[in-house]
Structures are given as C-alpha cells and as structure tokens.
Design a protein around this nucleic acid. Structure first.
Length: 292
DNA sequence: CTCCAGGAAAGTC
DNA sequence: GACTTTCATGGA
C-alpha cells in the first residue's frame, strides 16, 4: 500500500523516526525497513512524499507512527531557543512511535547501563527464545514474547539472552504484570503522575525507565526522560536556568537522586510544555549524533 | 586492554 | 535525605 504525505501539513521522516533510538527492533534489508509490531511484520520505505508499506493496513501505520499528532504545532510549541531549533530542523519529520507497552517496558529495563547495539541484541535474543517465529520475504523475524512466556522464564534462560543483572528485574516485573499488579490500560487512562507512581513499583524501573515507558507507550507526551545525554544537554546549554551550585553538583555526580531527576525533568516540562517528550527525543537524537 | 553504556537498587553516612 | 557502591557484559 501507499500513503501520500503532505510534508508541510503532516511531516514524517521514516529514517529519523526509526533511528532516533526509541526503537530497538527495526532491520534494514535492501532498501526496505522491516519491523515486528504486535505479531505482524511491517515492511516500509519512504521516498520524499510517498510512504510505501506492506503487512498492515493504513490505520495501523497512522496509529503506530502517530501521524495524527499535529507535528508542526508541536514543533512550534517546543521550539523555544536556538539549540532546540537546530535539532528540530536537523531531524524534521521525526515522530514518537506508539509502542506496545510490554515490549517497551521490558526493553527499557534492559536498556539500563547498556549501549544501543547491546540493547538491540538483548531484545532480539529474548524474542528469538520466547517469541513466535514469523517468516516474511524469506527473512526470519520473531514477535516480542507474550507476558506469560516471560513470567515463567527461568533465570538462566534470561541470562542466556545476555541480560546480566537485568534478568532478575525482567523476571520479577514480568510476573507482576502477568498477575495484574500493573495494568497498562489503566495506566493509559491515568494521569502522568499517577501512572508513573504505579510503574515505579516494578523492580528495575526507576525514574528514567518509567518516563520512557510513559512517553513511548502510555500516551504521556509530557514525560521527559532524563538520561546521561539530557544531563549533558542541561550542563552545556541550560545552566542559566539553575543555580550554579546545582550545576556544580550535577557535574560532580554520576547518577541522579530522585530529587535532582525531578528538578531537571520538571524544568523541561515547564520549559517545553505539554509535549516535552518530543523535545527530549529531538535533543537526544541531535546530541547523540553530532553535537557535544 | 580500557572505558563506558538511554540506571536502579542496596548500602553507608 | 544525600552520597557511594555494586551489578554483568558487550561494544567501541
């Protein structure tokens, strides 16, 4: 199928969206991009204003890539200074993707203290061992595991997937989700603060992981995950919004206390507005790729 | 070989 | 409450 995009009204860039670090499961074969989403293989490519896709219907594509978000409006709201302006110009058309909550949650628990290539490998290993195999265009893909498969996984099996110390967190979180202790549908309907509080009960989920799950899979676009890159961005470009002693403390410390995390995150929420999560994603991608 | 990774939890003061 | 250490392993 094919979708004609008006890049002025509905800007979208497939490459920026897939490569900005929010997703860990897309592969490139020839000039096509393949992703496994909810047990379906989605095959896509983009040339200028034409988005070609196979495997799913139009509604699915529009929902997954949040084409309903008024991106020009959002960008104009978050575009508060020359730095973010550079980022939104450099990666015009980057959109936040509507991920499946379970996959998002487990992925970001695994992302703790790992680089992106290693994270991708962990998620692939988990899917290969516990997920359903799907063949598409003579390539093998694996759906992300069902919750009960993860909940009854043995610790050694999870460790075999290169999870290291994260194996225990994944196992225990999967058990808690499986027995209904946390319900994603409820969290989607809850407000940001309430939903975050619930997520923080899960082992392996701290402030940053919770905010990633809220932003990427639970409809909380005000979530602003503060990782090492956002810390660097603040230290380098937004120092005049904090007192010198606080910045000095940030530079000295390696990890953030909850209080310091919230100070940075809520600053960004006030500064960039209700779609601060979009600002985070543009800044993250911009800094990880070039600036420093 | 060394360094560090989209941090979180447990321990210490 | 604030600061420090530990955690397991792959990628660069």
């Amino acid at each position: 199928m094919e979708l004609k995009l008006n890049q002025y009204l509905t800007p979208f860039d497939l490459e920026h969206t897939l490569q900005c670090g929010q997703l860990f499961r897309w592969e490139k074969h020839s000039d096509w991009r393949y992703g496994v989403v909810e047990k379906q293989v989605l095959k896509m490519r983009q040339t200028k204003d034409t988005l070609e896709f196979e495997g799913v219907n139009l509604d699915f594509v529009e929902n997954y890539f949040r084409l309903g978000d008024n991106l020009p409006q959002i960008v104009s709201e978050i575009n508060r200074d020359p730095l973010i302006n550079q980022a939104v110009k450099a990666f015009s058309g980057l959109r936040i993707v509507r991920q499946a909550p379970l996959e998002c949650l487990i992925s970001y628990i695994c992302a703790t203290y790992k680089n992106i290539p290693a994270i991708k490998n962990m998620i692939h290993e988990l899917s290969k061992r516990f997920g359903e195999e799907i063949t598409f265009d003579n390539h093998e893909f694996y759906a992300f595991p069902e919750i009960d498969a993860l909940a009854k996984a043995a610790l050694y099996e999870l460790r075999d997937c290169k999870l290291g110390f994260r194996a225990k967190f994944v196992q225990e979180t999967a058990k808690m989700v499986n027995c209904g202790k946390v319900d994603f549908k409820t969290l989607k309907e809850a407000d940001y603060e309430t939903a975050k509080e619930e997520l923080l009960q899960l082992p392996g989920v701290g402030n940053k992981v919770a905010d990633c799950v809220l932003l990427f899979s639970l409809e909380k676009l005000e979530a602003f995950p503060v990782d090492v890159w956002m810390k660097r961005v603040v230290e380098k470009h937004y120092t005049n919004y904090f007192d010198a002693s606080f910045i000095k403390k940030l530079l000295k410390k390696q990890s953030l206390s909850t209080r310091d995390y919230n100070r940075l995150s809520s600053f960004a929420r006030n500064y960039f507005g209700k779609n601060a999560g979009y600002a985070q994603e543009y800044l993250f991608h911009f800094f990880r790729n070039k600036a420093l």
